[in-house]
Amino acid sequence: MMDMIDKKRGMRLRNRVRLKRRIWAARNLYLMFFPVLVYYALFRYAPMGGLMIAFKDFNAFLGFEKSPWVGFKFFNQFFNSIYLWRLVRNTLLINLYDLLFNFPASIILALLLNEVPNKRFKKAAQTITYLPYFISSVVIASMVVQFLSPSSGIVNHFIAALGGERQYFMTQPGSFRTIYTVMNLWKNIGWNSIIFLAAISGINGELYEACMIDGGGYLRRMWHITLPGIASTIVVLIIMRLGHVMDAGYETILLLQNNANLETSDVIGTYVYRRGLRGGEYSYATAVGMFQSVIGFTMVIMANYLSRRYSETSLW
């Protein structure tokens, strides 16, 4: 009996010594780590702790500690407001439009690029279609506004030339989603096609040769070989996108937003900015932001689970 206890203690001791030795052996690695570790603590985890002000009535003079607790007051305020439905609807629809129109468009672009017989032309087409992805949102928003200007924009120029009436696109709530979706199509179509091109390049070339020998043309090759070959990539990407339907990039939206189109252009991010940082309602805006973070987190976890079940691809 005593023997065993001694043995156990000895093993624990040995393990501890071994652990110390392993830590010492990895000291250079810890040193490499250190700056980023501090960074993550200060800029990623400290703000998570700051989420507690969603449950407090934050007052800058009292500070984090002394501001009084109010429980779910601000969450209830948001759930009972007209904004909940409006913001969720706008966010979901913007993402749905993107999935319905822009996602297939990038697949089609990849299929087309794959069929280009001339290498140089292919490269030029890729260079041009990827370009808008690297342009800043301020530049893009400025060009959108100029493009759609009622008096001098190119779009209204054509509408007027065809005998139509000039439209104030930026101030019509009914136009916002279309504008935003087309803008994103323009910006992302090339970039999003890269991943499909990568998937296509993984398809066995012999399949194409067999199809050619059988006399299969473009469309048959596309339908029977290329599309099935990238089907799993498509499914995984759709699942991942569904995981992100509650996120909408608010930066560009904010740049295109005005009081007239708020009805359709307001998303959670822009609302949090307006109420929190412009209006100073820190606690309320934090609660609204937290609502989005929690739902987004849950949905991404679910999407990842689905993706792992369906294919072997998952984020972790």
Binding site: F33, Y40, L42, R44, M48, L51, Y273, L277, A285, I301
Partner: peptide, 22 residues
């Protein structure tokens, strides 16, 4: 553990207001 802590920040964040206050 450290890797998990890092990955977690990809999916969850404090958001705009707490980041600004920090």
């Amino acid at each position: 553990l450290l890797f998990l802590l890092m990955m977690f920040t990809m999916f969850f964040s404090g958001g705009m207001i707490p980041t600004y206050l920090q």
